[in-house]
Amino acid sequence: MVANGEQQKQDLNVEEELLQDSDCCGNGCTNCILDHKPRPSKRVLLAGKRNVILSYTKFRLLRRETLESEAESKTGGQVLLLHFGHAPEEPGAGTEDDTVLDIPPGHHVMLRIGSLLRPYSPYWSDFQAKEFRILVKLQAGGPMSRLLAAVQPNDLLEFRGPIGQYAHDASTAKCIYILAQGVAIAPTLPLVRQVLENEEDMSRVWHLVCARDLRHVYFREELLEFAQYWNYRSCLYLPHQQCASAACQEAGHCVPECLHLRRSLRYKETAKVARLDACGLATHLNASIPGQRLLIVAGDSTFQKTMAQMATQSLALDPANVYLL
């Protein structure tokens, strides 16, 4: 075990030396790889093994699923579920048993294809099997989107990570507000699970999901499973929800008394046909519930900046307790 610990230190030193300015994707990520260097976690150190993704490593595409086609999306762009598994350079080599895959909740990995770099946040990973899944929305005309649109099962892609700064402390109860936009709901799922699946964690979670309409709310089944826990609350914000009724067509969106929307909702699902704003955020503030208040925002840079500013005041948050994915 001592030898393994020394090897971990050597691996870490090598990784920091190998980190180059070119490892930054240039997209202005909140958690830039240059600021938050990939390093072994406590979980990896306790396992006495090496995190296989600390340097750029090949992963094989095991499954590709189209959740939404470009023709189905009013906003344009396919939504793909991509499932990757580690592809050892020497299959069957004994050293393969000395590695694991550790991507903590709230962290992302960097995909490298040629000179292109893009960050993606896994919503599921397997420590021992060394597999992970990401949800990707392809952008029209995007260089990386064009490449990902063409990838097929058995193709090899390179990833590096994990990159991020969020670390949940279950020792003290907290009020955790998680705001998610569109496909960015995916990486918030493990953040919720780590609270709900820990019986000793008394933290409460408010999961506020912003989507175009009900059809664009991904992972509804998972949200319904979360709703079974006493310390979880969610609300869907659907500003473009619209049915075929005359009243809703005239208004341009479903009206509050829309029966079609009510019937479309499942047990314990709450939805509002509106954008999430400062007033909407304030309705989720319950000053009688004790605990430090944290905010986690997942979405594009504009969504992150806007929500972080609004929530700081509406939810009485300390700016130091705001985390952007």
Rank of each mutant, 00 (worst) to 15 (best):
204 R>L: 14
311 A>P: 04
236 L>K: 05
254 C>E: 03
137 K>F: 03
225 E>K: 07
242 Q>H: 06
92 G>Y: 14
102 D>K: 13
104 P>G: 03
314 S>E: 02
69 S>Y: 06
88 P>E: 07
138 L>Y: 02
144 M>C: 02
253 H>Y: 11
236 L>F: 09
61 L>W: 11
129 A>M: 10
147 L>Q: 05
197 E>S: 04
50 R>D: 13
185 I>Y: 14
31 N>P: 11
72 E>T: 12
121 S>P: 09
183 V>M: 01
163 I>P: 10
275 R>I: 00
21 D>Q: 15
249 Q>K: 13
176 I>N: 07
8 Q>N: 11
308 A>V: 09
304 Q>K: 13
295 L>H: 07
279 C>E: 12
184 A>P: 06
233 R>S: 14
71 A>D: 12
181 Q>V: 00
176 I>R: 08
37 K>T: 14
230 W>E: 10
232 Y>W: 04
125 S>V: 01
277 D>N: 01
208 L>H: 06
213 D>K: 03
19 L>S: 11
10 Q>C: 03
6 E>L: 03
34 L>N: 04
84 F>E: 05
107 H>Y: 11
54 L>R: 15
72 E>Q: 15
258 C>E: 01
81 L>C: 13
109 V>N: 12
324 L>C: 11
223 L>F: 11
255 V>M: 09
235 C>S: 09
324 L>D: 06
208 L>A: 03
58 K>T: 11
212 R>N: 09
200 E>H: 13
221 E>Y: 04
56 Y>P: 02
8 Q>K: 02
105 P>E: 04
87 A>K: 14
55 S>C: 08
182 G>H: 01
126 D>K: 03
92 G>D: 12
236 L>D: 00
157 L>G: 09
197 E>H: 06
287 A>V: 12
198 N>K: 09
284 H>M: 01
207 H>L: 14
291 G>K: 10
204 R>F: 15
300 D>H: 03
252 G>C: 05
233 R>K: 14
48 G>H: 04
296 I>Y: 12
187 P>K: 05
181 Q>W: 06
164 G>P: 07
47 A>R: 11
79 V>W: 09
97 D>M: 08
316 A>M: 10
325 L>C: 15
28 G>D: 00
176 I>L: 15
306 T>R: 08
173 A>L: 12
190 P>Y: 05
228 Q>C: 12
211 A>I: 12
188 T>Y: 04
223 L>R: 09
257 E>I: 02
35 D>Q: 14
176 I>Y: 07
279 C>V: 06
323 Y>F: 15
92 G>L: 12
172 T>C: 14
